[in-house]
């Protein structure tokens, strides 16, 4: 057998012996971005289909969690930068070729749109001005006046007008939100697939796969959050469908790798017998997809399943999926 042994004198920190330029921040951010995309997608979707009365938690509280997730995700991204004080340079240019530039702009737009969304529902979501924390109270009082113990209003006339405008044009906002959510969800995958230097990431299916996974984690969180039985059941059905789609995409990803060039076949081998096999199949496939899938199928068959179990498992699987993909993607490289 012919063998090739390569020795290199290079030992650059974070590059050698294997690339580890991206750490926990990027996968965490990809997870939170996907989760936010899922939450916002469902909020927009149920407004468009006119079912908001049934999906109160999704429409009113989902976007609040989504905005929180985006903010934490952006914080993680900022920590990842080696020169965080220069982050604003992302917003001095639009580079259509660069997925990261797309992502930066989409995240900005999504934050603004979801903030408007939250604002337009704030009175319904929190009818009482019940804030007890001193400094928060003071902060909120800048824009809010307490009318009596049971209601509050915006302090400024233009805010009231804007609220009315946002409420009147809810369907239009919902469309914007759904489109942005899909772009955000796909982008979390495209960010990785745009690097042809990393054989594991360089697969076009990563976009739809990450979107599906994001929607599935969003649905799982809403399933845990809601107290409404109908909403819970609906999300358990949606999640079951998304799990099946995700398994289908993952199968296709590996089929694509195995039918591709040598580096990609080797990339797939890391998951099919190689060093990532146990981590991936245990955390992502078994714990993250198959077990919650079975539990949700049982629920459809009228078994009593506490939703927290499949919900947490799906969230865990979604997060591990991103951590493993980012980590393995950097280890698997071109050899020449």
């Amino acid at each position: 057998m012919r063998e090739e042994l390569i020795t290199s004198g290079r030992m650059n920190p974070l590059i050698d012996p294997y690339l580890n330029a991206w750490h926990w921040q990027i996968p965490l951010y990809l997870f939170l971005g996907g989760l936010a995309a899922g939450l916002l997608f469902f909020a927009g979707y149920f407004i468009i289909t006119g079912k908001e009365s049934k999906y109160q938690t999704t429409v009113k509280y989902g976007p609040i969690v989504a905005l929180g997730a985006i903010i934490i995700g952006l914080g993680a991204l900022l920590l990842d930068l080696k020169h965080p004080a220069y982050f604003w340079q992302l917003y001095t240019t639009i580079r259509f070729d660069s997925p990261m530039s797309w992502g930066a702009w989409v995240l900005l737009l999504t934050s603004v749109v979801s903030a408007v969304w939250i604002g337009s529902y704030l009175k319904e979501a929190f009818p009482k001005f019940g804030c007890k924390i001193g400094f928060m109270r003071k902060l909120l009082k800048i824009v809010i006046v307490e009318k009596d113990t049971n209601s509050w209003d915006w302090k400024f006339n233009w805010l009231q007008k804007f609220e009315k405008y946002a409420q009147d044009k809810r369907k239009a906002w919902a469309w914007v939100m759904v489109v942005l959510a899909v772009i955000l969800g796909v982008y979390t995958g495209i960010l990785l697939s745009a690097f042809n230097a990393r054989p594991l990431w360089n697969s076009a299916i990563l976009g739809p796969l990450f979107l599906t996974s994001g929607l599935s984690t969003g649905a799982a969180l809403l399933m845990i959050m809601t107290k409404n039985h109908i909403e819970k059941l609906a999300y358990s059905r949606i999640d079951l469908l998304l799990i099946v789609i995700e398994l289908f995409f993952i199968t296709h990803m590996f089929m694509g790798f195995l039918a591709s060039s040598e580096v990609k076949v080797e990339a797939a081998q890391h998951f099919l017998g190689g060093d990532y096999t146990v981590t991936f199949w245990l955390n992502v496939i078994i714990l993250g997809l198959i077990i919650p899938g079975i539990l949700e199928a049982l629920e459809l068959l009228k078994f009593k399943i506490p939703v927290i179990v499949p919900g947490i498992l799906i969230l865990w699987g979604g997060m591990m999926f991103r951590f493993i993909m980012v980590d393995a993607g950097q280890v698997i490289r071109y050899l020449y």
């Binding site: 290079r10 650059n12 920190p13 974070l14 590059i15 050698d16 690339l19 330029a21 991206w22 990842d80 930068l81 080696k82 020169h83 965080p84 220069y86 982050f87 340079q89 992302l90 660069s98 990261m100 745009a194 690097f195 042809n196 230097a197 990393r198 950097q330 490289r333 071109y334």
Partner: peptide, 25 residues
């Protein structure tokens, strides 16, 4: 002066020819 140190170029290089300078670029 324009580099924020995001690492996208490092991830995209099949030769791993780039590195993070300790000064943040």
């Amino acid at each position: 002066e324009e580099c924020i140190g995001c690492g996208a170029c490092i991830e995209s290089c099949p030769y791993d020819a780039r590195y993070f300078h300790p000064d943040g670029y």
